[in-house]
């Protein structure tokens, strides 16, 4: 008897729910939009990286196999003229962050702190540096050499 009653009430429950379908649909829709918006709120928008283009050299200015030192945003970079074009490296040693210097005669970078040596392509030749010098993207356009530096705006939210 008790079972029968409970079954009856379950059918009632469902029937009432079909009658309340528009309301249920509205509630479901609202909940779906709400959740979608909340997810958008919680996951910050991915920022597309922005780059600044700097003119770093004129072609012919640097002899083949030689480098030019520049300061970009307070940090030294080297523009190197190679057989296959121009390259730009960060002047910060990948070992412990000292500033490397360009040795003209030996055509190499030398870090005075721990005797790290990089060749003109930025690759480690000897010493403790674990990685090659950090390269920047370079572009040549009508006799000019440009480098691209990622724009890093310092703010509490980036």
């Amino acid at each position: 008897m008790a079972e029968k009653e409970s079954r009856q009430s379950r059918r009632d429950f469902l029937q009432v729910f079909t009658r309340g379908a528009p309301l249920g649909l509205a509630l479901f829709g609202a909940a779906a939009v709400f959740v979608r918006n909340v997810l958008a709120y919680l996951f910050p928008e991915r920022k597309v990286k922005k780059y600044h283009r700097y003119l770093v050299a004129r072609e012919g200015e640097i002899p083949l196999g030689q480098a030019k030192r520049l300061i970009i945003g307070g940090k030294p970079v080297f523009v190197v003229h190679l057989e296959d074009g121009y390259k730009v490296f960060s002047g910060i040693c990948t070992h412990l962050g000292c500033i490397v210097r360009w040795e003209k005669e030996k055509e190499r970078f030398y870090c005075p702190c721990h005797k790290g040596v990089f060749n003109k392509r930025g690759e480690v030749v000897s010493g403790p540096p674990p990685e090659p010098l950090v390269p920047f993207r370079v572009e040549r356009e009508s006799g000019l050499v440009f480098m691209y530096v990622e724009e890093k705006i310092k703010g509490p939210w980036s």
Binding site: N37, V38, A40, Y41, P44, E45, W157
Partner: peptide, 8 residues
């Protein structure tokens, strides 16, 4: 700045 931040 935040997406839907003004709404929340």
């Amino acid at each position: 700045d935040v997406r839907f931040g003004f709404w929340i």
